[in-house]
Every structure is written in structure tokens, then in C-alpha cells.
């Protein structure tokens, strides 16, 4: 039975629960906007990385360069789009 529950994945699950709990501090504690956003950004991106590496096995084949390039490129452009849009439409500089 225990072979069905590999240590790495169990640890990954526990870690993701911990990260969720950490993110919840912004709800239960009275943090400033900047601190709260920092907490959320850190927990969300670490959480995503855990999924990617532990559960999705992104780096296990010869294609890992292509896979990581694809993800990094996508995330970079996603961030550019989100922050660019905010810069143009909301922040007004």
C-alpha cells in the first residue's frame, strides 16, 4: 500500500496545503496592500512551481528544455500583458 503513496508527492501535497494556509493570512490578518500582495504573489507562484515540478513531472524527459522554455515564455508574455494593460488602462502615467 505504501508504495502507492510516494514520499515526494505526499510532501508536495502537504506543502501546497501549508502554502494555502500562508496565503490565508492576508484574509485573517490586517496587512497593508503591499505586504498582502507580496504574500499572495510569493505563495501563488511557489504553489504553481510545486505543481509543475512535483506533480506534472515537467523536467523528466529530453524535452524539458522545450517545455520549460514554453512555460517561461508564456509566463513572461502573460506578465507583460497583465502589467502592460494595467499601465495603460488603470495606472495612467
Amino acid at each position: 500500500m505504501s508504495e502507492l503513496f510516494p514520499r515526494k508527492q505526499v510532501m508536495g501535497f502537504v506543502f501546497s496545503l501549508v502554502l494555502t494556509a500562508a496565503a490565508l493570512t492576508v484574509y485573517f490578518m490586517d496587512l497593508s496592500f503591499a505586504v498582502g500582495m507580496t504574500v499572495l504573489l510569493v505563495t501563488a507562484f511557489v504553489q504553481a512551481a510545486v505543481q509543475l515540478v512535483v506533480f506534472m513531472h515537467a523536467g523528466e524527459t529530453d524535452d524539458k528544455v522545450a517545455i520549460y522554455m514554453n512555460i517561461y515564455y508564456g509566463v513572461a508574455i502573460a506578465l507583460v500583458t497583465i502589467f502592460g494593460t494595467l499601465l495603460i488602462l488603470v495606472w495612467d502615467m
Binding site: 508574455i77 507583460v80 500583458t81 502592460g84 499601465l87 495603460i88 488602462l89 495612467d92 502615467m93
Partner: peptide
């Protein structure tokens, strides 16, 4: 992906 605003420079952003 970094230049799209030039299609609407006149939209009133700073």
C-alpha cells in the same frame, strides 16, 4: 508582444 500600445497612442494615457 511589447509594443501594442502604439496602435492607440492617442487614447489619453500619459
Amino acid at each position: 508582444f511589447l509594443v501594442w500600445t502604439h496602435h492607440f497612442f492617442t487614447m489619453g494615457q500619459g
